[in-house]
Structures are given as C-alpha cells and as structure tokens.
Amino acid sequence: PDLAKTKVTRYVVTVTDEMIDNELTRLQNRYGNMKDQESVNSEEDVINVHFTEVDASGQPVEGGATKDNSLLVKYFAESVRKQWMGKKVGEALTFTLAEAFEQKEREWLRSDLGFDKTDTAADSKPFSISITKIGLLEKRELNEEFFEQLYPGKEIKTTEGFREKIKEEIQAHWNAQATNQIHDQLYHQLVDHTPVSLPEAFLKKWLQTQGENPKTPEQADEEYPKFAKQLKWTLLSEKMVADNGIQVDPQEIRQFAKQQLFSYMGGAAMAEEQPWVNDYAEKMMKDRKYVEDAFHRIQTQKIFEWATTQLKPTDKAISAEDFTTMVESHQHDHH
C-alpha cells in the first residue's frame, strides 16, 4: 500500500500549567525531607498507620485484614480529618472505609488491604487505625542546587527555566505515547486494508491440530480471525523487511538487554561499559528464547519507524485525559 496516502492522525497532547505544577510539586515532595512531629497538627502531615479489622465491640477480628500504610492526613475524608488533630503516636481511631475515605481513595485501599478493589462490601467493615509515626514533609526548596541535582550540566538557573525543562519532559512523554498510537493506527491500516489471500479452510483445519489438546471446528472458527490477523501481519512484516533491507544487528540486541537491565533498576543511568553490565548482556545473548524475543521486538520497532517516515499524518490537539481515555478504550491484543 502507498503509506503516504494512508490516513493517520498524530495526537499532540497539550501540556497545561496544571500538569507542570503537579510534576513540580511531586519532585519537591520526592526530594524533600521528612521531619518527625510530636502530634498531628496539619492536613499536610504524613501519618504512618496500622489498619486492624475489628468487630462491633472494637476487638480485632481473627484472621481479619491488617496492614501498615503511610498517608497524608488530607487523604482522609474531610469530615474525619479534624478528629486526627492533636493525636499522638500510639493513639487510634475506628472507622469504616466508607466513613474514613472518599470514593476515589477507597478503591486502592481495598486492594491494599487484600480485598478485591471492586468489593464495595469491604467499605462497611470497621478498622482500628493506629498511628505508628507522624511526620511533616518539608518540600525541597526551588534553587540552583536542586535544579543541578535533577538536570546536571543543563545550567538551569531560574524557576522559569526549571518549569520549561519539566514541560519539555512531559511533552516528550506524551509525544512518545502519540508515536505508539500512530503505530497502532498503522497496524490496523495495513492489516485491515491490505488484500492478502489466505487459504482459510486449510488454516482452520490446521488450527484444530495445534496445541496439546485437539480443537473442535467451532473452537477453530472462533480463534481463526485473531490468528489470521497475526499471520497477515507476519507476512506484511516480512515483505517490508525484505523490500527495505531492515536488519537487526547482534550489538543492538546487547544494547536492548542493557537498557532492559537499567529499566529493571528504576531507570538509573549507569555507565554501560561496567564489566557486570557487559557480563549480563553476554549471558542474555546465550539465551536463545530471549534473543529471538528481543530480535522480534527490535525488528517490529524498526518496521514501524521506517513505515512512520513514509506517512503524512494530520496533527490534532488533544487533552491528556481525552488521549488516555481513547487509548484505554482501544486496548487489545496485537503485535
């Protein structure tokens, strides 16, 4: 197909001041200092608490849920925040989750306490919530030392310059998401609109014999559309690889292994030529399954990168919320 005529949209997420403010606050908190407090004085205090499921008389339920957690006082529902004021380590309050927290906090708390996050019945269970530590998070001051710590060598001197750098990073994140979304559109355009003739009857019979357990004709019929799409994509991929000389070098697989290792370690930027990093990459190069998987992933990325250079997408501005909703509603299983 003529990719230049393929209709695709490049979504350009608008980075708002609110997004920059939120990220700035997150960084100030992350690099701030926790100062111990005698008692709870403010909604900004952080309290380490122990949740214990109790019965109507306040006694711990045998085998009930228990969990340590760390919460800002302001995460509690407004009606109960004032009840924490003045409380000290060792003191406790008893609430149901429905009394203590707003709806948006309850879902992750249910999950954290070992319930299903959709189990609304858990909201009516009473918990004794006892304080084990009280702290006040002192936000990191916005100064050149902080800017240099986060962005070494970038010579950022002012808060305005710092905000601009944060904006660049947020935009880069959303641009990468938008590129993935272009790849998704491209996949559908190629698979759905390129005529490829497949021997359907033969392939359905073949599907019945695959796997440990033979499949019925009905099961093969059900699986066939997804299988046909995957096969079509494989055939189209192989053609694009052959026609455009797309190759994967062993060194690229080593580099892929190193980058994966760094991401496992929280994205820490380390010297790539450290002996143990190279040893890890060489060890992975001996794992045939890993090499095949890495080869496939790098090749797929290169196919999309080449195909994207042939496109003439139309730009469309969109909010981060709308973009996220659109992507989530379209999650499915392919390539």
Rank of each mutant, 00 (worst) to 15 (best):
Q299P: 05
Y187L: 02
P225G: 12
R106W: 00
M270K: 00
F147V: 12
K117E: 13
E218D: 12
D45K: 05
A294Y: 09
Y11C: 09
G63V: 12
A271I: 09
Q208S: 10
T234S: 06
P250R: 14
F162T: 09
E43R: 13
D279R: 09
N69F: 00
A268T: 13
E99S: 05
S197N: 06
P126M: 13
N33H: 01
G266C: 05
M284L: 08
E105Y: 08
T16P: 14
Q181T: 11
Y151D: 06
L72S: 11
E200L: 00
S39V: 07
T52H: 02
S124E: 11
K286W: 00
V54P: 02
Q103N: 12
D184S: 08
T94P: 00
F304R: 07
A268F: 05
D116Q: 09
R106Q: 12
T194P: 06
P313L: 01
D119Q: 07
V196A: 10
E91I: 08
T309W: 00
E160H: 01
A65D: 03
K104L: 05
Q177G: 13
Q230P: 14
A268H: 04
Y280L: 10
F323E: 02
H335Y: 07
T159S: 08
S319F: 02
S79G: 09
I129C: 03
M265Q: 14
E44S: 15
E169S: 04
L72A: 12
Y187Q: 00
L203G: 10
I303E: 07
A320L: 08
E53M: 07
H334L: 14
T9M: 04
E222I: 12
T120H: 03
Q37P: 01
Q255W: 03
D221A: 14
A228I: 11
G114Y: 09
I318N: 10
